[in-house]
Design a binder for these strands. Structure first.
Lengths: 339, 339
DNA sequence: ACAGATACAACAATCGATTGCAATTATTTT
DNA sequence: AAAATAATTGCAATCGATTGTTGTATCTGT
């Protein structure tokens, strides 16, 4: 139930204001929208009256009528990794950039963190009638759901990998190439026994692992070790610690994300293993905080800001009815102090 | 303009479905809402029909009618510091926790980053008719606006400082005590020439500075230096670097936030000043990443997760018509490696 | 002074659901 | 078998705006 939403001399709707001003609701509506059809004098009279009473037209009603909401949904599907929280830094970083871009264009943002228990979670979101468009962050294990909806719902852009022939429009880096870059940087530093830290059920992470394997193969090295590391930040550290013995003969680590990399460096430091003297670590994402750790993280940059910008402008194109192709950005190696 | 929001055999509204099922719209509405008033058989018939056609009732219309939106606004006023972005880690962290709590209760989140150019920015938000309640993150320099609205709009909870007699309901730590704690920890480590890094126009930061002064006074030390450091992360580092000369004779730094503290440590490291050997640094917030830096940050904990929980449950109380008092949490010193 | 143009405002339909009340039919009760 | 009750469904008002159409008063030109 809505509580009072208006100051004391409450005017609850356009009709009351109309009565007060001695005109019809239509005129009030036009006056408040600053339409030239109404006499300048009455228009101003109505506007000051509205201001005095702190009246503002109900957006819900307006949006229902004009069939345009100026709201964009930002959705995070947590398919696997349901323990992952929204507070995950990667997600927060991209959300921040999306929010900046959307707010600047006068759109509001509706945030949904979804655990896709119901088959039709995405259908439910797009058909709610509340949104002009949808941005999905991460494909998780919901590829089919995205394809199904992309078939008929145009204004949707997804952050993630692009696979040939897919229906839904994505923005993301070439994750495989990024993984390869990571591997090559480790190899260039003379590392020979590589490991990938991160679980590989999500397409993005899987591609990164494959890229690392590519690099190993190309250099004639044995296949890298793959160690699960889950994104629920509260348990990550101990999970990594537990893997420490397995890493006895490892000298180069490609992490699935910056967060994993940071945690890894942290755990290694706790065990008096020096980075990069004893082990090299390379991250993935280039979060702002990768630059602020000590030692600063060497990582593969996703250029999240640019990606977010691209997502937003492509979404606007699609809302306007234009078609857009998926964008795959070039990953670049950011050399800092951990390799 | 909304594009297609329904699969091929499109049914756009309840009326079309009603025609298809040979019943009235009222019955369809009740059937989809699983009301017991409609015959089990027809109810199921309508529900399968809806499912087959992927139909979902328009939420905008529903919400207009029932006057309940199940949407909570999360607002970040950027009064001063307009260059600060949503991607600020503190904000992102608290937003993450709020999102988790609200989503679990079945609420959606509408995110607004507002630059309060217009006097009535907050009025506009609460009177939009789009929200069941509002959470404001940070008081910024908008104390009056908050007071004015709190006068008549109940379902609002603000993250920030509580000053005696204020109208709006806040959740936050005792910032002054936190600042004092920070100062005491520096003094306990033998530091004598203190500085506060952060600009002090926002009430929260100002209180922290005052707390630091309290500690200095109590220990018979001269008043701490106060150095502006703005929260726009892109320029923060150079700003701190520029202040470096001023800090020539400083040996203890209380930072206005963890982010500032991290940047400070980073800049000091770049200038071969060892932390904590040469200078001690204490942060404020205890962001998750404070634990992951090297050296790990000594800081004042705000217990953001608990605070977010409190904000949400208090908001629900207020939506239900109950009164709630402001909550002031105890800051605690988290001793790590930078003091 | 009168036809035609212009300016302004009222009327009423519309967006898409929900829901109190009335109406109809089916089931019990007496 | 009639009356009373219960179970379903339909009708129509409602939420609060927007906007195309229509109506009326005023103004212009001749």
């Amino acid at each position: 139930m809505n509580s009072n939403t208006t100051p004391p001399g409450r005017i609850r709707n356009i009709a009351e204001l109309a009565r007060l001003a001695g005109v019809s609701t239509g005129t009030v509506s036009r006056a408040l929208a600053n339409k030239s059809l109404v006499n300048t004098e009455t228009r101003e009279r109505i506007q000051t009256l509205a201001r005095e009473h702190g009246f503002r037209p109900n957006q819900m009603a307006r949006r229902l009528r004009v069939q345009e909401t100026r709201v964009i949904g930002v959705v995070v599907p947590l398919g696997h990794e349901r323990r992952q929280h929204l507070s995950d830094p990667f997600f927060m970083t991209i959300l921040g950039h999306l929010a900046d871009a959307l707010t600047e264009s006068g759109y509001d943002i509706m945030l949904s963190r979804v655990i896709p228990d119901e088959e039709d979670w995405l259908e439910r979101i797009v058909a709610s009638g509340m949104l002009d468009g949808v941005l999905v962050i991460g494909q998780s294990n919901q590829f089919e759901a995205l394809e199904r909806v992309a078939e008929y719902y145009r204004p949707m852009v997804v952050w993630g990998s692009h696979t040939p022939g897919q229906k839904h429009c994505t923005v993301g880096v070439d994750n495989r190439k990024g993984g390869k870059l990571a591997g090559e940087s480790l190899i260039a530093a003379g590392r020979k026994r590589l490991a990938f830290m991160g679980e590989i059920r999500a397409p993005e992470l899987h591609e990164r692992f494959l890229g690392l394997c590519d690099a190993a193969t190309a250099a004639g090295l044995p296949a890298p070790l793959q160690l699960d590391t889950h994104l629920a930040s509260d348990t990550m550290a101990e999970e990594i610690a537990r893997n420490l013995d397995l890493m006895a003969d490892i000298d180069g680590i490609a992490a699935g994300s910056d967060l994993i990399a940071m945690q890894t460096v942290r755990v290694l430091a706790d065990h008096d293993i020096a980075v990069p003297k004893d082990i090299s670590v390379v991250g993935f994402d280039d979060l702002p905080l990768a630059e602020q750790t000590i030692p600063r993280l060497t990582t593969i940059s996703q250029n999240i800001a640019k990606g977010a910008q691209a997502m937003v402008s492509m979404l606007f194109d699609r809302i306007a009815g234009k078609e857009t192709d998926s964008v795959e950005m070039e990953p670049v190696l950011i050399k800092r102090d951990t390799v």
